[in-house]
Write a protein that binds this DNA or RNA. Structure first.
Lengths: 241, 241
DNA sequence: GAGTGGTCTAGACCACGGT
DNA sequence: CCGTGGTCTAGACCACTCA
């Protein structure tokens, strides 16, 4: 027996049910969910219906099938996504993780664009982190990261040197905040004096501007960041169908 | 009876079979393919297998299901894709088609980047079109379009004023070249003197550079174009999962 | 009402991963 | 060997479109 709107198809209600369970961390990231046969028996539906529900969750990237082993809740895997931006300069096409250097962190009143993106109440304070990403000591990206205070308060106790290069795994381990998807938007602009200095490029030269809103499984906003990098180092690829 | 590698699953061989038929224009764009029941009978497979094959073609965007009507071969619908780049400045979020003004067309030796993208033999000549796209008379995009001579030779007889605003429908109607997908890549740069003049912007201001390789159903390259537009007018959106 | 795609079932058999 | 997901079948019934 599955709850939910009776008018919806069974496999969709089952999809919602499983999706909710995963979002609630009933099954954790990296763990296997019950087998298809078990789910079919428990929810009293045919195995074909279970497969259809699971199919859609796989397509959404929430879970992962491993033939002969089971169906697993996916771990956050955003590490690679950032690399879509970087021009692969290394001959081997290496995917090195850029060094992350935190310049400043403060609790401050959130500007309106952060308020609306993180869905905060007007006048709320939020955590703002300024960070530089570097390859071989060369600045590649200047990031301004905004986090809601209520979910990330303990973060303020950290020293800049204690931040890891990749933040999302830390969000998951220390705060239980799993990034499931993100929306990005890209523009370019002539660099201003502040970022020209940070990125060590000539004032007025073109920079790519990347806005990213990172969301949890239940679509609630977790982090908003604005990044700038020298345009010459960026190339973004898309396939249109 | 379905041909193809016996080791591949049935539904995948059926997918390939249907895909080939569509690419060969056995069923034309806009027409319906046979019903699921008919296909199941003809190929002597169960209807579930037919549905799985059709599912994957739908996901690829080659065909489209219309409940109660049939399954149709998709028409090229690239008109909308270009708009992903434009900042919607109109309050209503209108999707107007920008005017296309052909500045120059010539048959000339293809540069190496065109050779490799269009898979031409070295030293081959190709058709090059310079075109400006405008909104309300304001230049938005300067395009340099490259086409293989063998497929598009009759195009050279056209006068600049005879070109339509949208080229892909013309490719389809006059040359039987259907654009099925495209690969794009985005960068930004400081504008050079030539494009500054064309786009009527200040020399050195940032422009978005969009490279697009347009492909047919069988993945052969049909058109390569390089477009530049003022960065302030562009915003590109992506969802990462 | 005839014909289409959409949902759902119950079960057989295969391919793969571990023990 | 067992348990997992992957393929495939044959058929019932529903929802939608159009004449």
């Amino acid at each position: 027996m599955i709850s939910g709107d009776e008018r919806l198809p069974l496999y969709q209600r089952l999809r919602d049910e499983l999706s909710t369970r995963i979002a609630e961390q009933h099954w954790r990231a990296g763990e296997a969910i019950p087998s298809e046969a078990e789910l079919a028996k428990h929810y009293e539906v045919s195995i074909g219906t279970v497969r259809k529900a699971i199919d859609s969750l796989v397509k959404e990237g929430m879970i992962e099938r491993l033939h002969g082993k089971g169906t697993y809740v996916r771990r956050a895997r955003f590490n690679a996504s950032l690399f879509r931006f970087f021009r692969m300069q290394n001959l081997a096409g290496e995917r090195r993780i850029p060094e992350g250097r935190v310049l400043r962190m403060e609790l401050t009143e959130a500007p309106s664009i952060v308020i609306s993106n993180l869905k905060l109440a007007p006048g709320t304070q939020a955590i703002n982190i300024s960070r530089l990403r570097l390859f071989d000591g060369n600045p590649m990206l200047a990031e301004s990261i905004w986090l809601p205070h209520d979910r990330f308060a303990p973060l303020l106790a950290l020293k800049p040197s204690e931040f890891p290069d990749l933040l999302y795994p830390m969000y998951e381990q220390r705060f239980g905040q799993v990034i499931a998807s993100a929306k990005e938007s890209l523009t370019a602009e002539a660099v201003g004096p502040l970022h020209a200095r940070l990125l060590q490029i000539e004032a007025g030269s073109p920079v790519m501007v990347i806005e990213r809103l990172a969301l949890g499984f239940d679509q609630h906003p977790i982090e908003w960041r604005l990044s700038r990098g020298p345009a010459s180092e960026f190339r973004y690829h898309v396939e249109i169908r």
